[in-house]
Design a protein around this nucleic acid. Structure first.
Length: 128
DNA sequence: TTGTTGACTCCCG
DNA sequence: CCGGGAGCCAACA
């Protein structure tokens, strides 16, 4: 409806992409908390798009305001071991925020997992 | 439009 | 608990 008849081209005519929605959500994760790839997918309405979430973070530019290090896998571990040494950086950043990792490289998700406020959180809680 | 790829998960043994 | 295989989704060539 209400097609743009002003002739003016808005700076953002395109709807927010899946990537943008991932970034927006991750930006809400408070310091000291984490979310999982699958969880982000659930919160975005695509419970099986966990891989796409990781892909989105991988596409982040060098400079950004997204706390990407607060996204870990469902096991509570860092999922960057096969990629670069950024895995060590991510763990260091999380430990700096107070998270504690076990000897096996995993942390207690039940304790650190964050959920957004609002109605969306309700259905999401069911997932966990 | 089809095929490929990947910072994931789940299901089986 | 661990390893292997299949499924799913979005972006890109």
């Amino acid at each position: 409806m209400a097609r743009d008849t002003t002739g003016v081209s808005p700076p953002e005519r395109k709807p927010p992409s899946f990537y943008d929605r991932v970034y927006a959500l991750v930006r809400q994760v408070p310091r000291g908390s984490v979310v999982t790839y699958g969880q982000v997918a659930v919160l975005l309405g695509s419970p099986t798009a966990a891989r796409a979430v990781g892909y989105a973070l991988n596409a982040l530019p060098a400079e950004n305001d997204v706390p990407w290090w607060r996204v870990i896998n469902q096991k509570g571990a860092i999922s960057l071991k096969n990629r670069g040494s950024n895995a060590d950086l991510q763990r260091a950043l999380l430990e700096h925020e107070g998270l504690v990792f076990r000897e096996d490289g995993r942390c207690d998700l039940r304790r650190y997992r964050w959920w957004p406020d609002g109605d969306d959180a309700r259905s999401a809680q069911l997932y966990s």
